[in-house]
Amino acid sequence: MQLRPVPDPVRPGQESVWDYPRPPRVERVHKRAQIDFGGVRIADTDDVVRVLETSHPPVYYLPIVAFGDALTLGEGASFCEFKGGARYFDVHGGGGAVAVRAAWNYPHPMPGYEILDDRVAVYAGEMDRCILGGEVVEPQPGGFYGGWVTKDLAGPFKGVPGSMGW
């Protein structure tokens, strides 16, 4: 059994991902989110919610309509014990760019997560850039998780080598 790591020090203006709850909490965010892919902006909205879960950077969900025609239903599905069944989308950008299964949503979220209905999250590492409140975000380490790392977070973050048991 792997022990919980020692949380990084929290600097002024930061929050620790180790203070996030399990089961996860969903909350509205008062920041603009913008996503660029294939050299074009594919989403731009201030209607943003985030999911906070212990050891993870927040995952940001935007209204599906904010993506216009940049999403097509992709292959596969997954299941979260808290949020329910997820489906995946292929993301389309400028110049014919396609990122396969680079976005997901919960078409029928479980009780307590209804606000995620008709919202989509994207893997920041698959996009040209994701911007939150004017800050270009870093993708959550590891490639499997979809959190967005910003300067107002203290880790360490799930996804780094050796963190599977956190």
Rank of each mutant, 00 (worst) to 15 (best):
F67S: 04
L71T: 07
R32H: 02
E126T: 07
S78A: 14
D128E: 12
P111V: 13
D44S: 13
C130F: 10
E138G: 11
M127I: 13
F37I: 15
Q140S: 11
N105L: 04
L116H: 03
G125W: 07
R41A: 09
G76N: 04
I131E: 02
V49Q: 11
W104S: 11
D44W: 04
P24Y: 14
P109R: 08
P111M: 11
P111K: 09
V137S: 09
V49G: 07
P109H: 06
Y61C: 15
D128K: 10
L62V: 07
G143M: 07
D44Q: 05
R87A: 08
C130D: 01
A124S: 12
L73N: 01
R129H: 14
L73Q: 14
M127L: 11
S78Y: 01
G112Y: 09
S78V: 12
Q140K: 04
F37R: 12
H108P: 04
R28M: 05
R41F: 00
E53Q: 15
Q34F: 03
V136W: 07
L73C: 07
G95T: 08
L116A: 04
V137Q: 06
Y106F: 13
F82E: 09
F89D: 08
S78M: 07
V120A: 06
V59K: 15
V29P: 01
V59F: 01
E114D: 14
G147H: 15
E114S: 09
L116D: 05
V40K: 07
R87Y: 05
I64G: 06
F82M: 08
R25K: 15
L52Q: 03
P63C: 12
G76D: 00
A77D: 04
A99P: 09
V48A: 04
A121S: 15
Y60R: 08
G84E: 00
G68R: 00
R50P: 02
V137T: 13
T150C: 10
I115G: 09
P141A: 13
A33R: 03
G143Q: 15
Q34M: 10
Y113N: 11
I115Q: 13
D69N: 12
